[in-house]
Simulated scan of single mutants.
Amino acid sequence: MGFFFQGLRWVARNPRWWLFGLIPALLVFIAYAAGLYWLGTNAVDVADWATPFADGWGEAARTALRALVGLVIFGAGVVLFVVTFTAVTLIVGEPFYEKLSEQVELTYGDLPTGHELPLWKSIPRSIKDSLVTLGYVLLFTVPLFFLGFVPVIGQTVVPVLGALVSGFFLTVELTALAMERRGLARRSRFAVLRGNKASALGFGVLLFLIFLIPLASVVAMPAAVAGAAVMVRMRLAAPAPQLRP
Rank of each mutant, 00 (worst) to 15 (best):
L144Q: 06
A185R: 13
L209S: 00
A54K: 07
P24Y: 04
F146I: 08
L243G: 10
L100F: 01
R13T: 14
N14I: 05
L68T: 15
F20H: 08
L170D: 07
V92P: 01
P15Y: 03
A33R: 11
Q242M: 13
V132S: 09
V46F: 14
L177N: 02
L174Q: 10
S130P: 01
T89F: 03
E180P: 10
L170C: 00
W10V: 05
R16S: 14
S126L: 12
Q242Y: 08
L209K: 00
E173Q: 14
A43V: 11
V69S: 06
G195V: 02
A240H: 10
L131F: 10
E105D: 08
P159A: 11
A220R: 06
V28Q: 01
W49F: 14
L119W: 15
W57H: 08
L119Q: 13
W57C: 03
T113K: 13
L71K: 12
D110L: 13
T133W: 06
I91L: 11
S188H: 13
L106F: 12
T107C: 04
G183Q: 04
L36I: 05
L161E: 04
M179I: 02
F211R: 06
F3H: 12
G2Y: 11
T113L: 14
L117S: 14
L106I: 06
V150W: 02
T84Y: 06
V79N: 11
V160E: 04
M1A: 12
Q155A: 15
L144C: 07
R9C: 10
V104D: 01
P124H: 08
L207N: 04
L131T: 02
A238N: 03
V158R: 09
D129L: 06
A76Q: 11
F74E: 10
P239M: 09
F3K: 04
G202S: 05
P95T: 05
R13F: 11
M231K: 04
M1R: 02
S188E: 15
L117F: 09
P241S: 07
G93E: 07
